[in-house]
Nucleic acid binder design. Structure first.
Lengths: 335, 335
DNA sequence: GTGAAAGCGCTAACAC
DNA sequence: GTGTTAGCGCTTTCAC
């Protein structure tokens, strides 16, 4: 069995209460006692049992993070940003993968709750009925929604200005003279996707272009789904002259689809993607993208959560971070 | 306060012991009691407190994972593989980022231990004196080393056949007629890197090529470090005609370096990388790589850990997974 | 300033 | 089959 606070107390010749006070740095303890306690703690190799502490203090200094897919670089970066902030404040992040599936998300949230996390950050899966999230909120567990909003959940959210970002992307394409502009997105059940499609529509309207339902191609949440959706769009006899891909998996998919159809970019089809990755400047032509502040997203979510953990009981905040168009070659604008 | 097992027991008109047995599915309980208990549990919205359970059962059904950088797709895939296996067995994965730093790794391991994880998977950081790992082992916490071995730590390890993989890559280059072959790697303090460099050396020797120290360029653990190291190598007046990059960050770095020096691939410099990513087929020419079984690495580590968690007390196992050369265009072999 | 003692929510002997 | 009871390791009144 490992060393407990009783062992330390005994070795230091004090009570467990004094040992706890000395070690915890709270309450009163004489300098002498302090010294003796920390000395024997060191000697015995005492390590506090956070689980036992959590049982009484009702705080685990652990927070949960539920993402759709940690293999998506977007989530990986956000997770990193969150972990950095939380680590710096003594919290540990429990990570769960929901696989973009409502059922798995529910189970992940439950598993995290059972472990008494002090708070949670979740990237809601598409089609999730948000009961498990409202339950969290009513149970008083601080919750921050990341990247996607959920109607009916009174929680903080940290999102991207998707409408503006998408609008900038599509307006850029329209400005280059394109009239037939398609979009490849995953499910609009995800608010970020819905907003990007909305931005696409706004830009078309502003350019006086009538939207064509056939130019909107919706896929699932994986790279392969992105490729299939892009293929459907680009294989049409009346294929668009330009495509906006609403997330990085869709961008990969569009690039693959273009290649398999032997379409040149930007000559045969111009491309602007949402979300920037390190390889977007490695391909030829480099990909014009709307860059999201990925790590900031996680960091800001972490800071919001920390405020709540500190007791901030204000109304839910909705924070929006900017996404900026970076013009490179794939849109045909040179660069 | 939330619903406890006492509340459930009271509502069902039984003792907490019976309620626990009924809920936990262990020990004896009459069908009638079972039904009443689960009924009132449902009605009250009872959720077991895993923290309290852990305190007495000395098992948290939680395992820790410490990686160098979750933003590295290699680790993300391994993390995913591990999480999939553990989730399927009711375990939750606590993730910690060590930033490829020995100090942060130590703190991460400590934080995880304090949370009483039942086992741990760690990707050891370079230069870490392995005390915290040996401590883990002596404390009886099952440990599986992932991707990198550590001398003096009696733990299972799941590694890649790095020597053979690297040898195949470099032999391929030599077979294509290259005599001046460079390597870009991160620190050989990491056993996987050391092994890849060793494979490189073996292949040179087998091809009758004298190794030149100047053609071995060592960088740090980030993409930028990779670029700098590649730049040093490719900017030499007597630059190599072929380069082997020992991990995916180095491959990105080499590609960037080649571009900034206006070197054509494979005409001016041929390239073979270690670790395959989705964009390697998107760049022109597509990158010849040694593909690692990334998700399997995590899965196998998870299975090994599960065996230990089930009580397997056999001697440490060292498992090696194959890495295979995939010839594409960047080596100049056509494809 | 310090110690005794009462739990946090749960499990596991051990009687009955 | 079921209830009683004693903790798991820690924090925290409340006396002294």
């Amino acid at each position: 069995m490992s060393v407990t606070i009783r062992d330390v107390a005994r070795a230091a010749g004090v009570s467990t209460a004094t040992a706890a006070r000395a070690l915890g740095g709270y309450g009163h303890a004489s300098p002498a006692a302090r010294r003796k306690v920390s000395e024997s703690a060191r000697q015995l190799g005492y390590r506090p049992n956070v689980v036992a502490r959590a049982l009484v203090s009702r705080a685990t200094t652990t927070v949960g993070l539920v993402v759709g897919d940690i293999e998506n670089p977007f989530f990986a970066a956000a997770a990193r940003g969150l972990a950095d902030v939380m680590d710096a404040h003594g919290y540990t992040v429990l990570l769960a993968n929901a696989d973009e599936d409502a059922g798995r998300e529910r189970r992940a949230v439950d598993a995290l709750r059972a472990r008494q996390v002090d708070g949670m950050v979740v990237v809601p899966a598409p089609g999730a009925s948000p009961e498990h999230l409202t339950e969290l909120v009513t149970a008083g567990v601080p919750l921050v929604l990341l990247d996607r909003a959920v109607v009916g959940v009174a929680a903080d959210s940290v999102l991207v200005r998707n409408v503006a970002g998408a609008r900038a992307a599509v307006a850029h394409l329209a400005g280059l003279g394109h009239r037939r502009i398609g979009v490849v997105s995953d499910s609009p059940d995800i608010t970020s996707s819905a907003e990007r499609i909305q931005g696409y529509r706004q830009a078309l309207r502003a350019a006086g272009i009538a939207p064509e339902p056939g130019l909107i191609s919706i896929g699932g949440p994986t790279r392969d789904d992105g490729e299939a959706a892009a293929l459907r769009l680009l294989d049409r006899p009346d294929r668009p002259t330009a495509v906006f891909t609403a997330n990085n998996f869709m961008t990969v998919g569009a690039l693959r689809a273009a290649r398999s159809l032997a379409l040149r970019i930007p000559e045969d089809v111009a491309l602007v993607g949402f979300d920037d990755l390190d390889w977007t400047t490695l391909v030829q032509p480099p990909v014009t993208v709307v860059r999201q502040p990925v790590a900031d997203l996680g960091r800001v979510a972490g800071e919001r959560l920390l405020r709540r953990l500190e007791g901030d009981a204000g109304p839910p905040k909705r924070i929006r971070l900017d996404a900026n168009l970076i013009v490179r070659g794939s849109c045909g604008a040179g660069a």
